[in-house]
Amino acid sequence: MKPATMWARANRWRRSLGLDGNDLRRDVDRAQQRLGIVLLMLFFGIALPLGVHTAQTVYDSGVRAERHEAATWRRVDATVVKVKEVSGRHRVTVAWTGPDGTRRTGDYTTWRGSAVGSRIAVWAGPGTVSLLPPRDHSRTVAQTGVVAAAVALATALPLLGVHRLARRRFDRHRDRLWDAAWARLDNHRIGP
């Protein structure tokens, strides 16, 4: 994008917000501008602290889950002992030998079925079996970003709704003022 185009867009945006000192602006325009600024300040006052707190909580929880899964899950070669179809998915039961020599079993649900007797690699943890490896840091960062964006959106939507309703009301009032101004202009007699 050319710098001149960028500055022209920024200037157009500034004027649309009413930040240009235009003497032709009416009180209704100034009231709408003040409401927009208050709603914007309210958004930043709510969304930033709430988003930071929520993102920090999700990130800390994800890091704890990463550490826990890395310490307790291990990759094992298991044998499929039973496959049961449930609601279009497959409930697969696998068996493997633990590090202490005991025979263990576990279940997981998947979209793709496996044949009984086939060998597959799974991740086993305390009380769980999964095809997915332990949680990695990129998943924690992605979840943190999604949650922060969701908090910002959840905060912005009600405020945008208030702004839209207020803008409708301001537009109706502005239209009445324009109609009254045109009526006064039509009543003005020109000539002898």
Rank of each mutant, 00 (worst) to 15 (best):
K2H: 13
P3Y: 09
W7E: 15
A8R: 10
A8T: 08
R9L: 14
A10Q: 13
S16W: 09
G18K: 04
G21Q: 09
L24K: 14
L24C: 08
L24F: 10
R26H: 10
R30V: 11
R30A: 07
I37C: 10
L39I: 05
L40E: 00
F43M: 05
F43R: 00
F44I: 12
G45F: 01
I46Y: 02
A47Q: 00
P49K: 05
L50A: 08
G51S: 01
T57S: 13
D60G: 14
S61K: 15
G62L: 03
G62A: 04
V63Y: 07
R64E: 15
E66G: 13
E66W: 12
R67K: 15
T72S: 14
W73M: 15
R74K: 10
D77K: 12
T79S: 07
V80Q: 04
V80P: 03
G88W: 02
G88K: 00
R89I: 03
H90G: 02
V92F: 00
W96T: 01
G98R: 05
G98I: 02
G101D: 03
T102E: 14
T102G: 12
D107I: 11
T109Y: 11
T110S: 15
R112Q: 15
S114P: 02
S114F: 13
A115Q: 11
A115V: 09
R119S: 11
R119M: 09
V122Q: 03
A124R: 03
A124Y: 00
G125R: 00
V129Y: 01
V129C: 01
S130T: 06
L131E: 11
L132V: 11
L132A: 15
P133N: 02
R135G: 03
H137E: 14
H137V: 13
T140Y: 07
Q143C: 08
Q143K: 11
T144V: 05
G145D: 08
G145C: 10
G145Q: 08
A148D: 04
L153E: 00
A154W: 09
A154P: 02
T155E: 01
L159P: 01
G161R: 02
G161I: 00
F170G: 01
D171M: 04
R174I: 04
R176A: 13
W178N: 11
W178G: 07
D179E: 14
W182D: 13
W182Y: 12
W182I: 11
L185A: 15
R189Y: 08
I190D: 13
P192R: 10
